Computed example of a mutant assay.
Amino acid sequence: MHHSRISAYVLDCQVDDLKDAAEFWSKALGRPVQAFDQDGDGKYAELATDADEPFLLLQRVDHEARIHLDIETDDLDAEVARLETLGATRIAFVKRWWVMQAPTGHRFCVVRKQRTEFGPHLNQWD
């Protein structure tokens, strides 16, 4: 048995610097910027969210701008396998997560558990 839930909404931004993008989305969504450079590499900015909400991340990318979901899980291999049985395909393993593609063509990531407490919005899979 393992668990999963939506971890993050990720705004893929085709920009040189995320600062202006983070400021725009902060004002548009009414969420303060929590970090302009989350990992120190200039690739991720984060807007503030409550503990029971998905993260709001901005990611600097080379591909066209879009939004994607991150699904967090306490068993990465089991969740990826479950999603493959539903028709998803593995695209690439990056650092600590899988980039996958849904049968609908949408890309998404399956990541390890991001917060200490999973919270009330949790799916349980056998």
Rank of each mutant, 00 (worst) to 15 (best):
A48M: 14
F55Q: 10
S4P: 00
L76G: 00
V61S: 01
D75S: 14
E53S: 10
I71V: 15
V80S: 01
L76Y: 02
D39V: 05
A88Q: 01
V99P: 00
D75A: 13
R112F: 00
D75E: 07
A22V: 08
F93C: 00
H68Q: 14
D16E: 14
A81H: 08
H2P: 00
A65M: 13
E79P: 01
R115T: 12
G105Q: 11
A92K: 14
T116E: 15
Y44C: 08
V15M: 07
C13K: 11
P120V: 09
Y9I: 15
D77L: 07
H3E: 09
V111E: 00
R112I: 08
V61A: 02
V15E: 04
H106L: 13
D74N: 14
T116S: 07
G87Y: 06
Q124A: 11
P103C: 12
D70W: 10
L18G: 02
K27M: 10
D126P: 02
A78Y: 01
G119D: 07
R66N: 15
R90Y: 08
F24E: 04
Q14I: 06
E23D: 15
A81L: 10
E46W: 06
A28V: 14
I6F: 10
K95Y: 12
D77V: 11
L18E: 05
V111K: 01
V94N: 03
D41N: 12
R66P: 01
G40Y: 07
D126E: 13
F108N: 02
D126I: 07
K43H: 10
L11C: 10
K113H: 11
R5Y: 03
G119Y: 08
L18P: 00
D41M: 05
A8N: 12
T89D: 05
V99W: 09
W25S: 05
G30Y: 06
H68W: 13
G105M: 12
M100G: 02
I71M: 04
D52S: 11
T73M: 02
A51S: 14
A78H: 00
S4F: 06
V94P: 00
E117N: 13
P54M: 11
E64N: 13
D12N: 15
K43F: 05
E79M: 06
H3T: 12
